[in-house]
Design a protein around this nucleic acid. Structure first.
Lengths: 238, 238
DNA sequence: GCCCATTTGTACGTATGTATA
DNA sequence: CTATACATACGTACAAATGGG
């Protein structure tokens, strides 16, 4: 691994274990150079990662303040998937695959995904049970050209771990959209909704590889009372 | 302004005006060095800004691909405020201030904001009319220690422009949370809700300055049918 | 399969500017 | 005013991926 990434992970660990507690200052860039035996640029790259992740706030002439990261415990932002989410939380949960089949791209799907009509895609529907209730429903379409095989046991686990670790895909970025929509019959049947539920949250995602090909289109349906989205955002200077 | 930031703005403009159309490659870093007469590090900093903003995708050995930015037309992410949002859109809209007064921090507010009970804050409530209907309601609390004066005409315009351009505040980052909540009587009275509306989206934000002081706590209420949140997210490597 | 030019990624060194205390 | 700390900028070198011959 890179030096700057290793230093990032080390500093992250020390912040999380309170070796560098909130409100304190990290060692200066000069001191960190000596501590890790690297150049200043390498230190600054590591500090940039910490800054973007919301761990520190730098101030010219003063130093790098450690931010309070405990109040920010649910990082859905930054392309984290459901399975990775669970690892951080302590929720009893279960994934049930209700559909896993190859289909052809329809005109409707082509419009939202930019895939050619007739291309082969995997169609995957998964119920996400949390504490016994289906409160999330994930509908995925995956380009078969990129994902030739999609075994059931992988679909029940994390498809992202399968794509990255076993298929060697490099997932680069995603475009996400959050909206509220009326419940359809299909959703009604597949989710454990309450009588008073008339709407669901829909998180639509297009996910792209490093070569800018879109390989995944997802609609993730969330019951209103179970949805929460937390984001750390830096002010982009205009 | 910085060189790398100016180069970023110039490249951004050229991407938006299709001088560098989607799917094409930017000039190589070496070529850009010659074009702008700067060092490679400066070019790379500008390209990093483009990468983070979702304009390009770099690939080692190949170059920097221009991404299709048109399909991504509503950048609410990254701490953009309502007023800045409007500028990009072509929506008839209006802001009505219904409350603007100094108060003291209550224990409830203290819990969510980390402000001391009894500190002075501005309490600001604004109705956001879009096409004549109040579909967004913003409840702001602003630390009076940081914002000594808050004139009505500034509150009706963009408070962020007032803070940054006139007060010289440096807004650094924010923690945001999106949830769905039941409608309260207060919300019912201040928003133009439909008979079938039982819930609203609540976007809660804590906004921080460069010195890590929290100066703003906001609850933004959105009518379900008018809410949309779009995000560009890069995969953070684990 | 291999070499080679091109392109981006990482890393180091140095110098100067600017903000803070 | 000075020492310290971060910000910007330039230069250099080598590694790694890509694509053409």
């Amino acid at each position: 691994m890179n030096k700057f990434h290793e230093i990032f992970l080390d500093l992250e660990k020390k912040i999380l274990t309170n070796d560098y507690p909130p409100q304190s200052l990290l060692p200066s860039e000069n001191q960190l150079m000596k501590i890790y035996g690297v150049s200043r640029e390498t230190i600054r790259k590591a500090l940039n990662l910490l800054t973007n992740a919301g761990y520190i706030q730098k101030k010219q002439g003063k130093g790098s303040f450690v931010l309070d990261v405990k109040r920010f415990d649910f990082p859905l932002s930054g392309l984290t998937s459901f399975k990775e989410l669970q690892a951080n939380q302590h929720i009893s949960n279960q994934t049930i695959v209700t559909t896993l089949e190859k289909e052809f791209v329809t005109p409707q799907l082509s419009q939202v995904s930019d895939w050619q009509v007739g291309e082969e895609v995997w169609h995957l529907i998964r119920q996400r049970r949390i504490d016994g209730e289906v409160v999330i429903l994930d509908k995925d379409y995956l380009l078969a050209d990129v994902i030739p095989e999609l075994p059931l046991e992988k679909a029940e686990d994390s498809i992202y771990a399968y794509f990255e670790d076993e298929l060697g895909l490099e997932i680069a970025y995603a475009k996400k959209e959050i909206e509220v929509k009326l419940i359809t019959n299909e959703i009604q049947e597949l989710m454990d909704l309450r009588p008073e539920d008339t709407h669901v949250i829909v998180v639509t995602s297009l996910v792209f590889l490093e070569d800018t090909t879109c390989f995944e289109y997802t609609e993730s349906y969330h019951r209103l009372d179970k949805f929460r989205f937390v984001e750390f955002a830096r002010r982009r200077k205009i």
